[in-house]
Design a binder for these strands. Structure first.
Lengths: 157, 157
DNA sequence: TTAGAATATCATATCCTCATGATGATGTCA
DNA sequence: TGACATCATCATGAGGATATGATATTCTAA
């Protein structure tokens, strides 16, 4: 259902969300904790930062933080950076025309199913997936380590 | 949603079903009609024959036929030979344990969605996808070209 | 028995995903 | 200023999905 990379990304975002009260999460630390190859994760993290999901900070005390509160990050924002979730083809068969025209009952049902999948990813937020950890649900921004200065927010080149 | 190969397989099966009254469908003919690479399709067809979806006949007058009536072939029988449809992971994150234990509402929803997808593929048949073609729905076995003798039904090696 | 029709299979080639190792760039802190 | 921590990036490669071309095999029909 999800590519390896997208799953990595989701697990990583969950990790960062769950450890937000400890300040920025380091790539090294997450790679070890989540059993994800170090350098591969690095690239995935970078893509998440570019995509506006994370902010990154270099140097001592640096690492990755969520760019928004977990409740404001739909799963699609994470997964969509790696996999194509939106149903590009309404028709199961990739036929260009077909679809709902000749009233094919099966197509209607397929449309329903595929829309449900898409809706799940766009309506479920990161907060919805967070287990009973130290920080749960929204992060009120109170008792957290301060964000270092040069934080990168969806930098553009 | 579906791999290229699985989509080819589905379109091919649909083609064979729609042309059942013309006798066995030849690989060459289908490759041209469906714009699928000839030899690649050949392998896909072979896999479908091994999987019990098609029967193949060599030599003059040979080609491919459905092994059963279209209504008796769920889409899963076709697609499942190429893609993994059944939700191997109940947990979206690939966590081994997690899942429904700590009552995570999102997981319940995900389970619902993924089961719907699986159900669609197992409950929808090839006949359900057939358009208004020459042969529609079940093939009553009446006015058809006779099946040549040495037809291969899910040959095993 | 032989020619031809058609599938079956083999040997490659290309591209993408996933992965690894090494190095560069940039920030903090003493 | 210099040491160090940390992210950013490059070069490379294994493996699978997709694809192509050539050849082998098997069957029918005359």
């Amino acid at each position: 259902m999800l590519s390896q990379t997208a799953e990595y990304a989701l697990r990583t975002v969950l990790y960062i969300a769950g450890h937000a009260d400890e300040g920025p999460a380091r790539a090294e630390e997450m790679a070890a904790a989540l059993r994800i190859p170090r350098n591969y994760l690095s690239k995935t993290l970078h893509r998440l930062a570019h995509g506006g999901v994370l902010t990154s900070t270099r140097g001592r005390g640096g690492g990755f933080l969520l760019a928004r509160s977990p409740a404001d990050i739909p799963l699609l924002a994470v997964v969509g950076l790696f996999d194509q979730i939106e149903p590009r083809r309404q028709c199961l068969l990739g036929r260009p025309v077909c679809s709902d025209q000749h009233a094919c009952e099966a197509h209607v049902q397929w449309k329903d199913v595929s829309e449900r999948v898409a809706r799940f990813f766009s309506e479920t937020s990161v907060a919805d997936l967070m287990g009973p950890g130290p920080t749960r649900g929204k992060v009120p921004g109170g008792a957290r380590a301060p964000v270092p200065k040069g934080a990168t927010v969806a930098r553009r080149r």
